[in-house]
């Protein structure tokens, strides 16, 4: 009986780890949507490029695992943020006056371009990022991988920091103001263009951080972004696009459901079940589980 409970807790922790990665990525999509009302479908590939930047930085930084892993995290965050900023400057800013569906289609183009870039430069091979936390920790009678604990703790810290930033700093409050009413924000003298840039940078940084955290476990490969993207995206829709707590809750729930399903049932149908549930929610409650009733329009 003891063993079964241990197994369950391990499955649960696995779900939380994946769930936090989903949440960090979904947060970026939701923040961008809040500001521009654009469902930024290329977001997952910022995560992927961040992972590659981390891989490159780690291989340059040398053999000291601690140093190379920190370098990997910093590079991933920086590059993902940069890709986010560039996507806004080069693509979305040009389409501000166009209907939102044009931006959505442009995002698909960006998704293809970024993935094609990674495929052309790095090839389809799997790459490793090594972590200094490559050992097991004994918690009670439970053996947990240290990397998983690192992911849990740093994700929680990041999300707490994000909330502090949004609620307690001038820039964060300005960001919320733009999300609520771009015209109103401009009237009180907020530079909406600058705030939008900051939003893209934050969204990118979150994705890059998530990538650097999970890469030692899942490896780095070109379609890692597309795989995550779809899930992160639907999490946002289910949580209510633009709804920050909704994105976090949605991410954690999907991670746990997937992990429990994979831990106890036929793993073959894992993706089908996940997407089936998501599409059912999308159809039955298009405003999202936590959203207001205006999203259908």
């Amino acid at each position: 009986m003891m063993i079964e409970i241990n197994y369950f807790i391990n499955v649960l922790i696995g779900g939380l780890v994946v769930g936090f990665i989903y949440a960090l990525t979904a947060l970026g999509i939701t923040i961008i949507y809040g500001i521009l009302q654009i469902p930024d479908f290329s977001h997952g590939n910022r995560y992927m490029l961040g992972a590659y930047a981390g891989f490159l930085a780690a291989s340059i930084a040398g053999n000291m695992l601690e140093i190379s892993y920190i370098a990997a995290i910093l590079a991933a965050v920086a590059v993902s943020a940069l890709v986010g900023v560039l996507s806004y400057l080069l693509v979305y800013r040009r389409l501000l006056d166009a209907p939102h569906i044009t931006s959505f289609i442009a995002a698909i183009g960006l998704l293809m371009l970024l993935e094609g870039f990674a495929l052309a430069v790095f090839g389809p091979r799997y790459q490793h990022i090594h972590t200094p936390f490559d050992y097991m920790v004994l918690v009670g009678a439970l053996r947990i991988s240290a990397q998983r604990l690192v992911i849990l703790l740093s994700s929680i810290a990041t999300i707490a920091f994000l909330f502090y930033f949004l609620k307690r700093t001038i820039t964060g409050i300005a960001l919320e103001a733009v999300a609520q009413s771009p015209i109103g924000a401009r009237l009180v003298g907020i530079n909406t263009d600058k705030i939008t840039l900051i939003a893209f940078a934050i969204a990118g940084a979150l994705a890059g951080f998530a990538a650097a955290l999970i890469a030692p476990i899942t490896l780095v490969y070109p379609i890692m972004g597309a795989e995550l993207n779809l899930k992160a995206f639907v999490i946002c829709v289910v949580g209510g696009l633009g709804n920050i707590p909704g994105a976090i809750a949605g991410g954690l729930v999907l991670g746990i459901v997937e992990s429990i399903y994979g831990g106890y049932f036929d793993i073959r149908w894992k993706n089908l079940v996940a997407f089936g549930i998501l599409v059912a929610i999308l159809i039955l409650k298009p405003e999202g589980l936590f959203g207001k009733k205006e999203r259908r329009a």
């Binding site: 959505f104 829709v237 089908l272 999308l282 159809i283 259908r296 329009a297």
Partner: peptide, 23 residues
């Protein structure tokens, strides 16, 4: 099922069905 959703929501729902059919 999907056509009462609008704009990007419809696009996302149809993309999900594409993934489901593939799976």
């Amino acid at each position: 099922m999907t056509l009462r959703l609008k704009g990007a929501y419809f696009a996302i729902a149809t993309l999900l069905f594409n993934v489901i059919i593939y799976e």
